[in-house]
Design a protein around this nucleic acid. Sequence first.
DNA 1: GTCTATACCTGGATAGAC
DNA 2: GTCTATCCAGGTATAGAC
Lengths: 214, 214
Amino acid sequence: MPPQDNTEERILQAATEVFLQYGKDGARMQTIAERAGVNKALLHYYFRSKEKLYQRVIVKLVDRAIKAVLVSVPRDGRFRDFLTVFISNYVDHLATTPELIRFVLWEVGSSWRTPDKAATIGTIFKQAIERYAGGRNLLIETIRRAAERGEIRPVDPLQFTISLLAVCVYPFVARPLLEAVFPELDVLSEDFLKARKRELVDLLWKGLQPEATN
Amino acid sequence: MPPQDNTEERILQAATEVFLQYGKDGARMQTIAERAGVNKALLHYYFRSKEKLYQRVIVKLVDRAIKAVLVSVPRDGRFRDFLTVFISNYVDHLATTPELIRFVLWEVGSSWRTPDKAATIGTIFKQAIERYAGGRNLLIETIRRAAERGEIRPVDPLQFTISLLAVCVYPFVARPLLEAVFPELDVLSEDFLKARKRELVDLLWKGLQPEATN
DNA sequence: GTCTATACCTGGATAGAC
DNA sequence: GTCTATCCAGGTATAGAC
């Protein structure tokens, strides 16, 4: 079923834009209605409540994001190539979707007080990953295999996965803080992104070598 | 002026607890009033508005946090020691103040739509750092000095600073996501924390060595 | 299915007595 | 300084006509 030009689809699209821009609390049903060219009552007719509408949007967004990141994980090849490609693609993806970052941030921030575990962003992420990779964990597996083959030194794959995600994501998440503290920094600039990718591959690859002067 | 048992102080204390627990939006003036043992009207009498009260709280919290982290930066000594001590202290601090993480996360998330630049968390951070370190940047300086001395290979101090902060902070920030995706993971457990510190020192120290097999 | 009009609730802010 | 009572805006949800 391709995205039709029917009312439901228009509302969902408008809701996505508005939620991305203003967040769950900041978004107004009125605004969504206007952007979709209908009125408030119809939103409730189709989606019952703001909460339900929001859930639909968030699932769609997370799904898209997970896919965009995992698609760049080469299933084989040398580990150094994997590292380079993954970092490059992930950083680029993050740099080009700042609203999504902000959005996920909002969700993570509020997931603490959410009573309903099933509606939490964590669960939505997990399900999206399962849908995409069928329960397997591509990053963990790639790192484990590389270690087994001796391409890199033995490391805890989970720990390294976390570190890898960390160094990629952090600048974009902490951007408001970093740019305030370091006025010369512009996280989204071409210069910084290029340098960052290079530094990260360097740092992590060197950090994974078996022999280093101690 | 030690925290007196006067009304204003009691309100501020209650507000801190409630804001930490529920966040800016989630917190109710009613709740704060009850916890302080007074009524809503008094909050406005002392602090004028919820916004003003909130600002007072956030400055206090950020100040405390900055101090707790920067105090663990040794001003001299070998770089490897600095790395070990900083990671250990920072990770411990993060692990013991989960509400603060959540709080900062909320603030960063909302700092995007805040019109008033001066009231953003970024500015508050910057000011707190200046108050504490007098405009100097201890992390950057430490890394630069180590590179100049040849203790580590030449790296961009800013890039490495970001990476260092990233690998420390990320697990706590992304905890809801990570623990959903990796069910066996318990970020706040002693086991994980201990392992994490070890892995981080290893990874970063090795990553900073001049000679590595390429 | 789609509209207008409105009910209704939450929560911050204030008036005014003491 | 501290209280009670009340106002008022903003926003979700629904009733009911077409």
